[in-house]
Design a protein around this nucleic acid. Structure first.
Length: 203
DNA sequence: TCGTTGATATTCT
DNA sequence: GAATATCAACGAC
């Protein structure tokens, strides 16, 4: 009930992918924990060689999780108010992670609505700060293992088209089209401008 | 509907 | 001191 039926876990080999490739693959994947969750509809990639990334200037107390084991969470405070949730990846390039920017809410809508202070579906998880609040994720989950309960990541099911575009809210690395979205989803945090749509690569 | 702005913590210069 | 991977409230159209 709190999970997608017939959903399989993410292929293990995905954790060796670079952040940009994984960010694209994660579109359509399921993210669940503690009775809430949904389908990932928007992501962004960040890498250590990327001036927009927290990991660009090396390891610090805040970004320590980005340099740790893959498949774990990197959760940081944004603008002093919100929390943002990332998935650490690419063991060959420490400092790589995928920011989860929006979910299609599927499980635990009542709990999400209570935490968010609204029942409007588009306001529950459409944005990196909104989704952490809706899911009840905060700094306590920084470094948490996402490959084991209570977390569950499930592979995308069925065909879908991808949108790509520049990342949001950054001032460096703006030329990189490392934001990805699920074409046609009403749960994106913001529209994609001239988002080139294309079929998602299987596997 | 759109643009502007305040809130507020942590990091880096 | 300045910047920041954001959001919601507010006022002008």
């Amino acid at each position: 009930m709190l999970d997608l039926p017939d959903a399989s876990s993410l292929p293990a080999e995905w954790w060796a992918l670079d952040a940009v490739t994984l960010a694209a693959r994660l579109i359509g994947a399921g993210l669940f924990w503690r009775g809430v969750g949904g389908r990932i509809v928007e992501t962004e990639a960040y890498r250590a060689d990327d001036p927009a990334s927290h990991s660009f200037r090396g390891e610090t107390l805040r970004n320590r999780a980005m340099f740790g084991a893959v498949g774990r969470a990197y959760v940081y405070r944004s603008y002093g108010i919100h929390w943002c949730f990332n998935i650490v990846c690419d063991a060959h390039v420490p400092g790589s992670a995928v920011l989860i920017r929006a979910l299609e809410p599927l499980a635990g809508l009542d709990a999400m609505a209570e935490r968010r202070g609204t029942r409007a579906p588009k306001l529950l998880c459409s944005g990196p700060g909104r989704l952490t609040q809706a899911l009840g994720i905060d700094g306590g989950q920084d470094g948490a293992d996402l490959l084991a309960p209570p977390f569950r990541l499930t592979a995308p099911v069925g065909p879908h088209a991808l949108l790509t575009g520049p990342r949001i809210g950054i001032t460096k690395g703006v030329e990189q089209p490392w934001r990805f979205g699920l074409a046609g989803s009403p749960y994106l945090s913001r529209a994609f401008r001239e988002g080139r749509a294309g079929p998602a690569d299987p596997t």
